[in-house]
């Protein structure tokens, strides 16, 4: 007898308690004052953001805190036009990698303040190498989304 496979619905929802560690905790405390902080590696001299407790390249501890600018350059960007579970906002929206002035590692974040009425022409409005500045939220809670988005300037 040919039997059609039965499909059983399931759902897994698990709570987690993620420890940020003291370095990330301080990094986000500084966000409340609109400051983006990195740590400088004494060995390779790179300024790492977000602030790290050890260097990703040199495997040494990094304790020298430095402030970087909330302005920078778009290294690359993408227009997201599809939906998925856990998405931070409804598409379409733009994310990018921002090279902040004074930092040696890019920051992934949203690029906002760009009209998305015609997706086919979006490449004319967002430019790799274009300058952007952080738009901070009014109420900041110590979270990556305390920065609403990076806005093209000039």
């Amino acid at each position: 007898m040919a039997v059609k496979s039965r499909i059983v619905k399931g759902f897994i929802s698990l709570p987690y308690n993620w420890s940020m560690g003291p370095t990330t905790t301080r990094f986000y405390e500084e966000f409340k004052n609109k400051r983006i902080m990195g740590t400088r590696c004494e060995k390779c001299n790179r300024v790492l953001i977000p602030a790290r407790s050890f260097c990703s390249g040199c495997f040494v501890e990094t304790t020298n805190w430095v402030q970087v600018s909330d302005e920078g350059t778009i290294r690359t960007w993408v227009l997201i036009n599809f939906s998925y579970e856990g998405q931070p906002m409804a598409p379409p929206y733009i994310t990018g990698i921002i090279d902040l002035d004074g930092a040696d590692v890019g920051l992934p974040h949203f690029v906002g303040g760009v009209e998305l009425d015609d997706l086919e022409t979006v490449a004319k409005k967002v430019r790799i190498g274009g300058r952007v500045k952080a738009v901070w939220k009014e109420n900041r809670e110590g979270h990556i989304l305390d920065i609403d988005y990076f806005k093209p300037i000039n």
Binding site: M20, T24, T76, W77, V78, Q87, P88, P108, I144
Partner: peptide, 20 residues
């Protein structure tokens, strides 16, 4: 803590790379 909201599944990452 940092990357999850922005690196949207596979198409997001690879398109960032392709544009660059």
């Amino acid at each position: 803590f940092f990357q999850r909201p922005f690196l949207a599944g596979a198409p997001g990452i690879f398109s960032l790379q392709s544009n660059e």
